[in-house]
């Protein structure tokens, strides 16, 4: 291994690490606010990549059905609940607007625009419009009814959601992978030290996303409400913060981060209907390295995973995954010996 190769490995590791970093951020965010270990986080990535790829082929992506179907399901659940509380009349107009009219309008917009191939930017915006609302829908359907269950129960729900989403993706997109067009083919540098524009996009968009999240948590009222919920759910409720709203916002952000990662990585890697789990798991390893609580540590951990993966694929490609996941064991051992156990803390509540 010479310097050229090492530099290239570093570049490759940082780019994939940046995506894992975004995953880790979303996982820590969702876990802190709702105590859900959000296994299907990677599903947003694969869904966004495949939706964008399908749009670029000028076809209507199956995600429109997911959006409309999810909306109808949420509307039904909400209506039943409102009827039980005797509030159906007051809530009905808002329910229909938010969960039926808006998703259907979005879906129709996509169906109408899809065959025109309006270029990368429009297609990316449409993809975000299709995927991001799925986050809060998932929260409403799968997690909110169990919001007070133990971490383990929520984890099992996550597994179920993961399997359901993977199956739906297979039905929507088929078994083959898709690779989307790069935003630009421009390449920086020459010879052995080439940096593709897409790699720069990935890293800078990830950094920008992290900065925006930092401002959101430090400066905005919603962000502070989320942090308060993360620190102490009961306390947050006592001072009037809706844990429901906090949960919905956390899932909205997670879906947005996931969809953005999908848009960023789909031009440099092929996305399959079941790519999500691996990407999510690598982010999860990163998040664990950061103890599931610290955002900067989680991102650092994820970039570390990216680098480790890149170098191990050079030295021992057949054992790449083994090396990455084996890393978890010493880290978990060390953490369980030094840190206070999060699950135990929950159960004391």
């Amino acid at each position: 291994m010479n310097t050229d190769i090492a530099l290239w490995m570093v570049q490759d590791g940082v780019v994939t690490g940046a995506i894992y970093g975004l995953m880790a951020l979303a996982l820590v965010l969702v876990f802190a606010v709702t105590r859900v270990i959000f296994v299907p986080q990677g599903e947003f990535v694969s869904m966004a990549g495949l939706t964008l790829g399908t749009l670029q082929l000028g076809q209507t992506p199956g995600t429109v059905y997911l959006l409309v179907g999810g909306g109808l399901l949420v509307a039904a659940v909400e209506m039943v609940q409102a009827a039980r509380l005797g509030l159906l009349r007051q809530r009905l107009p808002r329910l229909i607007l938010a969960w039926i009219i808006l998703p259907v309008a979005m879906a129709m917009l996509v169906v109408w625009l899809a065959p025109h191939k309006l270029g990368s930017w429009v297609e990316m915006a449409l993809t975000l419009g299709l995927i991001v609302p799925v986050g809060p829908m998932l929260y409403r359907i799968a997690y909110r009814p169990l919001a007070n269950a133990s971490v383990l129960v929520l984890f099992i729900v996550s597994m179920a959601v993961h399997y359901a989403l993977t199956g739906i993706e297979l039905a929507m997109f088929g078994g083959e992978g898709l690779r989307t067009n790069a935003i630009s083919d421009w390449v920086l540098g020459s010879g052995s030290m080439k940096i593709g524009a897409q790699s720069i996009w990935v890293v800078s968009a990830s950094v920008a996303c992290m900065v925006v999240l930092w401002f959101f948590f430090e400066r905005s009222l919603y962000g502070k409400a989320l942090r308060a919920t993360a620190i102490n759910r009961v306390g947050a409720r006592l001072v009037g913060i809706s844990t429901d709203l906090a949960g919905r916002t956390a899932f909205l952000l997670a879906a947005a981060i996931g969809a953005l990662s999908g848009l960023l990585m789909s031009p440099i890697t092929t996305v399959y209907f079941d790519s999500g789990l691996m990407i999510g798991l690598k982010g999860f390893v990163g998040a664990i390295l950061g103890g599931m609580v610290s955002y900067p540590l989680a991102v650092l951990g994820a970039v570390g995973v990216g680098l480790l993966e890149s170098f191990s694929s050079f030295w021992a490609s057949a054992y790449k995954e083994t090396i990455v996941f084996t890393l978890l064991i010493p880290v978990l051992l060390w953490r369980s010996l030094t840190a206070r156990h999060l699950v135990a803390e929950d159960e004391e509540e």
């Binding site: 994939t16 890697t269 399959y272 993966e309 694929s313 050079f314 490609s317």
Partner: peptide, 19 residues
Amino acid sequence: ERFGRADASVAGQVMKIIA
């Protein structure tokens, strides 16, 4: 060299082949 079906990158393996 070996890679996984859904691997995000095969940069390491390819680099080794080119070397």
